[in-house]
Design a protein around this nucleic acid. Structure first.
Lengths: 232, 232
DNA sequence: ACTAATCTGGTGCGGCGCTCCAAATGTGTC
DNA sequence: GACACATTTGGAGCGCCGCACCAGATTAGT
């Protein structure tokens, strides 16, 4: 009706915090961390920056919230397989792979997952992961006095390994498919190193192309689990 | 002399790439990642942005260079202790603690160390760490076919654990000394969790105050090393 | 129907990384 | 010493950014 009111129309639907976070995740998935800006978000939601800051506060808080959403969903989606037959080792692998897969789907997660552990040692992400993993260490035969050490070791290994899959940052569709290419380039670069200075790199250069990230990750977990049985 | 020439005076000494990197490290140490800006750097060096971009390129490249300088120095400063008596385990611990201490001194390092591993799998940082650690795994009794897996597991654990000590970002002098305070707050928050939902967190809350990061780190390494002996 | 509380879109500010370029400085040649 | 040429420098300016702020629209309470 009105030809030109200062606020022509409003949201037909109320703008919820969840909507903002979900849209943020979409932007992050599509274009990496750099693609999440106040302006890209306001445009996508066709709103102003005021609404966003009213709901979520700063950009950092939005990133934290996105991380929390994704991690919580990932952990919830993969409970212990069959509740009766699952061993503690199974449960730990389940949690670890849930995080691994979450990062495969949302590459920007890697960096922020670690930041959460450091910046918010309370908070659902840190507590959730620690609790889920920690519960199993007793069943592994680790003495109570070493529970904290054991859980820390597991969590640290898992996060370190999983961070490996961080995003190079940029558009997904164009940067994604060169995994094989990337491995080849790495192998070639390692091959070019001076064999005298880098005998080890030369010894393993053949293994880089035939290795599978997920399998290597599971091998690493098996190593840590083995080591934990000797704690006490 | 001249009342106002467009370029009143120049550097009395040529501006070297090393100077820029060192100044950047100083700024990072003093104020965290946010304190390193083109402008703060040009001010400190009393130059213009042109000189800096001419020498080091982008800000990211400067951060990479700073990371490389610090890590290389840390690794070089701590060679195997006594060359004859050092076991492979000793050497691995030496490298791990060198990284641990480097991050204690330069908290901003944590984030960028992991990024280097991901973004520049060649490059002195990644190769240096891998080579140094990888050489030992053979001596540990790990079969050649598993060398890559073993080295990866070690590096991933070390980086994951060491990232824990990332900076909250801000001024060093004011933010630093509240370590005990921080642990107390964490313990209190864990204590407040619902004991039914978080039995594990409650079980270990007593251990958080008496634990020592460095010792826990060494325990973790011992766990991984133990686990590696079963590889094959 | 009126008021108070809640919520939203948009403008503008200070600061960022970085490009670009004229001028100052080195380097070679005769 | 004079000149041409390559190298190096300081700084102005551009297009972004996160975010504070606020007028006004909407909703809820009575």
């Amino acid at each position: 009706m009105a030809a030109r009111t200062p606020h022509p129309q409003r949201r037909n639907q109320v703008l919820s915090r969840e909507q903002i976070i979900e849209t943020a995740i979409e932007l992050l998935d599509a274009g990496g961390e750099g693609a999440l800006t106040t302006r890209s978000l306001t445009e996508r939601l066709s709103t102003g920056s005021g609404a966003i800051y009213y709901r979520v506060g700063s950009r950092d808080e939005l990133l934290d919230a996105a991380t929390e959403t994704v991690v919580t969903a990932a952990l919830a989606a993969k409970p212990a397989r069959a509740t009766t037959t699952a061993t503690p080792e199974d449960e730990i692998r389940t949690v670890a792979l849930a995080l691994f897969d979450a990062i495969a789907e949302h590459r920007w997660l890697a960096t922020h997952l670690i930041l959460q552990l450091v910046r918010k040692p309370f908070g659902p992400v840190t507590v959730g992961i620690f609790e889920r993993i920690g519960r199993q260490v007793g069943a592994l035969g680790v003495p109570r006095a070493s529970w904290f050490d054991a859980a820390s070791t597991l969590v640290h290994y898992i996060l370190g390994a999983v961070s490996q899959h961080a995003r190079i940052d940029g558009d997904t569709s164009t940067v994604e498919p060169d995994r094989a290419e990337f491995l080849d380039a790495t192998a070639a670069a390692w091959q070019d190193l001076d064999p005298e200075d880098h005998p080890f790199m030369h010894a393993i250069v053949g293994q880089i192309n035939e290795h599978d990230d997920r399998e290597q990750f599971l091998t690493g977990i098996a190593v840590v689990l083995d080591g934990l049985t000797r704690l006490g």
